[in-house]
Write a protein that binds this DNA or RNA. Structure first.
Length: 304
DNA sequence: AGCGAGCCCTGCGCGC
DNA sequence: TGCGCGCAGGGCTCGC
């Protein structure tokens, strides 16, 4: 569900409750939400209770909370991935988060106040884990939200997203153009660039008038850069509107949805007129998912 | 090596 | 009303 803009909205929502805050108590209601944690449930709880949070950092769709060192030789972070249906909600007590609450954290703040974090996830594709932090390029922040170059090992293979000031867009464009796959598959490959999911891929392709199955290696460098620029543009606009909400599945930490669904030009618009040319937007299966495109603005490539 | 299929899950809305 | 089916914003692993 959540793509980069939605995860960034969540990151901004929890950021005020990281530095200066301490995890007092952890409750795990469903161990399946810890499937990316390398140890047991008890190990997860033991590794987190009593720890001080330092920041809320995001790269692509991955979020992590660096923890103050318990062992100076080994830094750790709480890694969160929301999967298709994950939410982080803030409240006063776990009971308010409903039956899909999987994990709750009780935090205490610098002035003795307390808050409860609820990790809510219908489909259980999301996860929480304590992970070790590995070094990346010295002096270059690993993601948005901290100047620290360290990154959790589970996130190390994820490429920088286009909103990352340290992202080398020319290099990303070149790596895209080495692939023979359809361009949408490449956009969704989080090791090429991150944060793009089904919605924003379709929006960026619409904006650039590209068919999802256009071979990536047939793009010129400037066309590939145009596409990355379109990805950044749609991310920025979605962020301004609080992200894309179709239903209760995506909400910010206060339970409120975003408004970008009203600005979508392609995703979910099948049967509607193209905002550019008036032709009817179609929906097609690609990669076992739905893709939406304008048949006139984004024609099928002549040869594949 | 790179690609594509399959799998991990639950719940909602629709048509019969 | 009730059931079965298709569908949903993601990512990892395993074959070929």
């Amino acid at each position: 569900m959540p793509e980069l803009p939605e995860v960034e909205v969540v990151r901004r929502g929890i950021e005020p409750y990281t530095a200066g805050w301490r995890v007092e108590r952890v409750e795990v209601f469903d161990p399946r939400s810890l499937k990316r944690h390398p140890g047991s449930v008890a190990d997860f709880i033991g590794a987190l209770e009593g720890r001080d949070l330092l920041a809320a950092v995001r790269r692509g769709k991955f979020l992590w909370l660096p923890l103050a060192d318990r062992d100076p030789r080994q830094s750790e972070a709480l890694v969160c991935h929301l999967g298709m249906s994950g939410q982080i909600l803030l409240g006063d007590h776990p009971e308010q988060f409903g039956p899909l609450l999987r994990v709750a954290l009780e935090l205490s703040g610098p002035d003795g106040e307390s808050i409860t974090w609820g990790f809510v996830d219908q489909r259980l594709f999301g996860s929480l884990a304590i992970d070790t932090v590995v070094e990346t390029i010295p002096g270059v922040p690993a993601g948005r939200g901290s100047d620290d170059p360290g990154i959790p090992s589970q996130v190390a293979h994820i490429a920088r997203d286009v909103l990352d000031p340290a992202a080398d867009l020319s290099a990303i464009a070149r790596s895209m153009r080495k692939k023979s796959s359809g361009i949408k598959r490449v956009l969704l490959d989080q090791t090429v660039t991150s944060g793009v999911g089904n919605i924003y891929a379709d929006e960026a392709l619409f904006s650039t008038r590209l068919h999802y199955d256009y071979p990536a290696n047939r793009l010129s460098q400037s066309r590939a850069l145009d596409l990355l620029s379109a990805v950044g543009g749609v991310f920025d606009r979605a962020l301004e509107q609080g992200g894309t909400s179709f239903d209760w599945q995506y909400v910010n930490v206060n339970g409120q949805g975003g408004y970008f669904s009203q600005s979508l030009n392609a995703y979910g618009q099948d049967g509607q007129a193209c905002s550019r040319c008036g032709r009817i937007i179609v929906r097609e299966a690609f990669m076992n998912r739905s893709s939406f495109r304008c048949p006139r603005c984004q024609p099928r490539p002549r040869v594949r």
